[in-house]
Design a protein around this nucleic acid. Structure first.
Length: 648
RNA sequence: GCCGCAGUAGCUCAGUGGUAGAGCGCACCCUUGGUAAGGGUGAGGUCGGGAGUUCAAUCCUCCCCUGCGGCACCA
């Protein structure tokens, strides 16, 4: 048998017979390493301890201390252990797939009865039993025929389908622990006992379509999370609790920002506090757009279906549009209208008024457009995913050769806005042509090329989202990451060669002939509703001072200070600060607590001392210390803070 | 839209096949208190909507609506 040379991370080399496994290598180094080994890295690949090594290789033995490969293995093995537990409890349940995901894993099952929360407890207990068995994990390579025959015999149709979808030349690997077996590409741990039994938790059960296809069977998915140790698990569960505290639906109620009700599902009733955030943000965006060379317009919300047929929306998105039928007296037929789901066809109508010259381009047309989309009921989520919303929308009509410069200009615009709003960085996703699309390949080539070049020249890296473009053109998506690491897609820029064609937009070029403009659809915040939801969660309700709906509460400590409190409020209001008085018959403790819970950034307390000194005692949200300021000082200070970042 | 779970006072939530409960909030009174809940009294409910079973339904069954967790969708 031939000899191979294995090189270790420290540069040491050892020689073994070809076919040696990492488990044997580890045991050869030391008995304890042999026991602790969970997997190996062989030439950079994640390698099962049982897989033979046949060539000279670099090798590193992984233990539970190597957190990245170890977590992957633990989560992966838990998926199998959970499937085994489920089948041991309910032998007629059919297994499907169970991948590792962020923080854990899931496994999809086909079972007639729903899993209940109590079932999760049962499964979890059974899983711990399996871990305690310390069952060795065995693996074998099988032929497709044998594997298919095996699963047909065992009445596991999903596995048969999976195998049939695997390309013919890939070897099929089977894994066992105990008598339980699963198809899996590995790698896995040495035995089930290597899984920390106290660092995982089954989280929830939810429906999921087989192979992600809504036309196919609905399976039951059980989600679990797993970590290297109990402490990490606890920290994760803690983090979830913290995230729940930031939920914009909860804070929206506590801060009295908005509400929603069954008569208008997916639509927001903005209360005075919430609407203050909305209009402050809108005023800010309007200033930015004016500076950015946009003109602002406003267009109708109910439009005849003929326009939507012409734009192509009727054909493609009719099911997601609010249709409005009107029976006019004496009308021969019903007028069928739709609420606008987007502003672009309307903007083309404005563009089409009068002849446009090449000198008019690029024409940047902005609208805070109220749109309505009949989103599927299951998609609705607070104010983040709604049926009625306002976009900070704009369409840039330009020549094809201006796409690149306009794209770069928009990316600069957007970077500046995000920075002002407290998001220092964002990532960019580039979505190219989808399978069903309008327009020729040549046009798509040019559009994709221009977008890419502009993104690069704006200094942005991007990740590719293959096939995810809109049907009319490629798009860029701008993704913000919030304070607890969640991603939110907000901005977008989409190139559109199709709509100007369909709605017959044109301009007179230098050559005196009519030419088609290109449209760039772009939004920076996306929708105000969604963006405000993101802001609330990002800041856990403690909005930056200039955006806070209630900026200052001036609280009287004793009734005799009431007149002075009103005087302070007036001074602040005159200085452009949103201030209100709290003269209620309550103790200062009570007032401080209530306004802190309400996320008011600044509380100014006034008792007789302040009246005499013409001062206030300042308490800022989240700070325990208070300090004294003269009325003049605090007015100047807060007035500056209340100024939006672009006006400072 | 699909799967599962839920809906009781403004909010958070107990509860029972036969008169509906708490805390907070709200109103009024007492209290003038110095930085995260001072005390008392009181009002407040078609128990999401509809049908059925039952002598009797907030409770059991079915349908619908809305919400929540996922899946699918997101021009």
């Amino acid at each position: 048998m031939s000899q191979i040379t294995l090189t270790f991370p420290d540069g040491n080399q050892r020689h073994y017979a070809a076919g040696i496994t990492p488990a044997e290598v580890a045991s050869d180094i030391s008995t304890s390493l042999g026991k602790k080994a969970v997997s190996a890295s062989v030439n950079g690949a994640h390698w099962d301890v049982q897989w033979p090594i046949t060539n000279d290789s670099s090798i590193a033995i992984n233990t539970l201390k190597d957190s990245e490969p170890a977590l992957e293995l633990i989560r992966h093995d838990l998926a199998h252990i959970m499937a085994r537990a489920v089948q041991e409890i309910w032998p007629d349940v059919k297994v499907t797939i169970g991948p590792v995901i962020e923080n854990g894993w899931y496994y999809d099952f086909d079972r007639t009865e729903p899993f209940t929360p109590e079932d999760l407890g049962l499964i979890e207990k059974k899983m711990k039993d399996i871990i305690n068995l310390r069952d060795p994990v065995r693996t074998e390579v099988w032929s497709r025929e044998d594997a298919i025959a095996h699963y047909e015999e065992n009445n596991e149709p999903y596995k048969v389908e999976l195998i049939e979808a695997i390309p013919g030349d890939e070897p099929l690997r089977m894994y066992w622990h105990g008598d339980w077996q699963d198809l899996c590409r590995g790698p896995h741990l040495q035995h089930t006992g290597q899984v920390p039994a106290d660092a995982f938790k089954l989280m929830s059960v939810a429906g999921a379509y087989w192979r992600g296809d809504s036309n196919r069977a609905m399976l039951q998915r059980i989600y679990g999370v797993a970590f290297l140790n109990k402490e990490d698990l606890r920290a994760y569960l803690n983090m979830l609790e913290e995230a729940a505290k930031r939920d914009h639906r909860k804070l929206g109620r506590e801060m009295n920002l908005f509400h929603m009700q069954p008569e208008a599902p997916g639509q927001v009733f903005w209360h005075p506090n919430g609407w203050k955030i909305f209009t402050t943000l809108q005023d800010y965006m309007r200033r930015q757009q004016t500076r950015g060379g946009y003109v602002e317009v406003n267009t109708p919300q109910v439009l005849d279906r003929k326009l939507w047929e012409a734009s192509g929306h009727w054909e493609k998105y009719q099911e997601n549009m609010f249709i409005v039928e009107v029976d006019e007296e004496h009308a021969r037929e019903k007028a069928v209208n739709a609420l606008k789901p987007m502003n672009c066809p309307c903007h083309v109508q404005i563009f089409n008024q009068g002849l446009k010259s090449y000198r008019d381009l690029p024409l940047r047309m902005a609208e805070f457009g109220s749109c309505a989309r009949y989103e599927p009921s299951g998609a609705l989520h607070g104010i983040m995913r709604v049926r009625g919303f306002v976009q900070d929308d704009a369409h840039i009509f330009c020549r094809p050769d201006q796409i690149e410069a306009e794209t770069k200009r928009f990316i600069d615009f957007l970077s500046n806005v995000y920075k002002d709003l407290g998001f220092a960085s964002f990532s960019v996703k580039f979505s190219d042509r989808p399978e069903t699309r309008a327009g020729s390949d040549d046009v798509w080539d040019r559009a994709e090329e221009a977008l890419k070049k502009a993104t690069i020249s704006a200094g942005c890296d991007f990740t590719l989202n293959p096939g995810e473009g809109a049907f009319y053109g490629p798009k860029l998506e701008f993704v913000l990451t919030d304070a607890i690491g969640r991603d939110w897609q907000c901005g977008t820029l989409q190139v559109d060669f199709v709509l100007p064609e369909r709605l017959e937009a044109n301009f007179i070029a230098e050559d005196g002939d009519k030419h088609r403009p290109v449209m760039l659809h772009r939004a920076c915040l996306g929708s105000f509703e969604r963006f405000i939801g993101i802001l609330i969660e990002e800041h856990a309700g403690k909005l930056p001072f200039w955006l806070a709906p209630r900026q200052v509460v001036v609280a009287a400590i004793v009734t005799d200070a009431n007149d002075y409190v009103l005087e302070v409020v007036e001074a602040l209001k005159s200085a452009g600060v949103r201030a209100e008085a709290d003269l209620r018959n309550e103790k200062i403790n009570y007032k401080v607590r209530e306004h802190s819970v309400g996320k008011v950034p600044v509380i100014l307390a006034c008792g007789m001392r302040e009246v005499e000194e013409n001062s206030v005692t300042v308490r800022k949200l989240g700070e325990k210390e208070t300090y004294s300021r003269s009325l003049a000082e605090i007015t100047t200070e807060l007035s500056t803070e209340a100024t939006p970042p672009d006006l400072r």
